[in-house]
Design a protein around this nucleic acid. Structure first.
Lengths: 302, 302
DNA sequence: CTAATAGTGTCTTTCAGACAATATATA
DNA sequence: TATATATTGTCTGAAAGACACTATTAG
């Protein structure tokens, strides 16, 4: 810290200043963390020979209180003054997903004035990726109604408008969430404007069915980030069990990227990140597959 | 919003609930924004034939109050409950750098409990990239002592330690800031641990000379992000004037990446992002260079 | 044998790195 | 003309896309 003898315009040293400091003058926003907990699960398969299809899932909690009573929201909660932001996120994760020490990454901080009808709330969203097999079947104990929703996020419209000094790109993105009979959805408009050399991105919820707050935005953003990062980092492995086949790994990539990949190229690319074992899958109605494990690397990404 | 007739366990509708909601129960952290305003400038050149060297600069403000009186800090300030986070950042930018409507991007939210000795402060850092030629020479009017510091950020040590179920990578990064006779610096330790399939990154300030708060961390992080993003987005153009030569553009890339690039490859890669004009540089002691302008693309990145 | 997935070989295309070769201002 | 930068051409090697071909299990 600074030289302890320095005095400010009021003749105070830092010590003296801090002793007198009153933090209570201004009204302050509340701060929360919101968790985007993703996992991948196997859908049931009718044909015994076929591999189970995989799907991306997101944990949501049914609100038991106002506001948005009865709607679904991301797990999260207020940050106390005595805990760090990351700590608060870990705490939420533990209480909601009942699992600690997993992959978690800060995504974005949402600070619009009207995002919560109760009061001014600024919220930092965190993404966590969990391996379904390591997870307790029941999700947490805190919230009564915590459910895994199958997520799907797709572009439904893209519009380009030329402006005087640039252009504007407007994309409508449909977020769908399904859990058994329950079906939620929202349309998010992502507007990117290039004016001069200035780029600006903004998100707006066009419609929302059953999703609380501005959480549709947080979900859309998280999926975009997930899609991006899976291409140039090794985060996908956080979704895998300790042992997996390369086909399973490829399925996870495909489900997140929303497109099919060629097996040969995929295997080449992923090869340096995995180590083969001597074990194989059994009892499939077809050729067994070698099991691999994750092999993190010196000097790999991020 | 939810069905307005739904009643919670106390028999209240959402309307009634919100009317009675009291936000004042819990103690709340303060929220601030911190701005990392980067620009590139031309250093003086002795030899009239040589091109001026370029350097990356960051705007810092000398603190006129406790805490950290007399040290240098990132421009920034408290977020009021009546303004959005982004708005607050724009406001700071305008008051500090005296320029509006430029490129700005949210980087990270810093929420450690002890990062500010006054009180609990959570801060969101924003990076802004400005074209030096479009900027008023005097930076802002708000803070008396605002100066552009030449920044340099380099890896000084890298250590890998094997752990039971993974390894830990410890990097010491030296941040140096120079403005005329003033010279600031800090060493930041970035620890990345891979345990099982879980990765965790943490930053710690090992030493700091003349930099207030935890701002050395914010600077190190911003430069890391800038280096990363310049490789796969077009943010570098925000640092350029409307017309520029490809050599100048290449210099900007080199200064940010901290390494030399081959001209041929660079030109190939950058070609789709620029449009050539009919203008040329003049009065250099060598062959004149064609001037280009930025050409944003449909469907380009992000 | 058949269905279905596992896994490999290889041709082509694309692109980055390297570096040589050529062009053109000014003092 | 010498200096310093501007700009292009092309060889090489690595990696991605495409696709065909072979392998192996349960039933």
């Amino acid at each position: 810290m600074a030289d302890s003898n320095l005095r400010d315009r009021n003749g105070l040293t830092e010590q003296e200043f801090l002793r007198r400091y009153d933090a209570g003058i201004y009204e302050r926003p509340s701060v929360t963390v919101d968790m985007l907990i993703f996992t991948v699960f196997d859908k049931e398969q009718d044909n015994y020979r076929k591999l189970p299809e995989k799907a991306l899932q997101l944990l949501l909690i049914k609100r038991g209180e106002h506001p948005f009573l009865g709607q679904w929201a991301l797990p999260g909660g207020f940050v106390s003054v005595h805990e760090g932001l990351e700590q608060a996120a870990q705490r939420e994760l533990l209480s909601e997903a009942n699992i600690g020490n997993l992959y978690m990454e800060q995504l974005f901080t949402w600070g619009d004035v009207d995002r919560d009808p109760r009061t001014r709330v600024i919220s930092t969203s965190y993404m966590a990726l969990v391996d379904r097999t390591a997870l307790d079947v029941k999700a947490g104990d805190d919230a009564a109604d915590a459910c895994w929703f199958e997520v799907d996020c797709r572009l439904v419209q893209e519009k380009k408008t030329m402006l005087a000094d640039g252009y504007e790109l407007e994309r409508l993105i449909r977020v769908s969430l399904v859990h058994e009979t329950e079906s939620l959805g929202a349309t998010v408009k992502v507007t990117t404007s290039y004016v001069g050399r200035t780029k600006r991105v903004s998100r707006e919820i066009v419609e929302s069915e059953g999703l609380a707050f501005d959480h549709a935005k947080l979900i859309e953003y998280a999926i975009e980030r997930l899609r991006n990062k899976i291409e140039y980092t090794d985060i996908a492995f956080h979704l895998m069990p300790p042992l997996f086949t390369l086909s399973e790994l490829q399925q996870v990539y495909e489900v997140i990227l929303g497109k099919e990949l060629l097996a040969a190229a995929f295997r080449r690319k992923i090869a340096p990140l995995v180590t083969e074992t001597n074990e194989y899958t059994k009892d499939a109605g077809h050729r067994p597959s070698k099991l691999y494990r994750f092999n993190p690397h010196w000097g790999s990404l991020e």
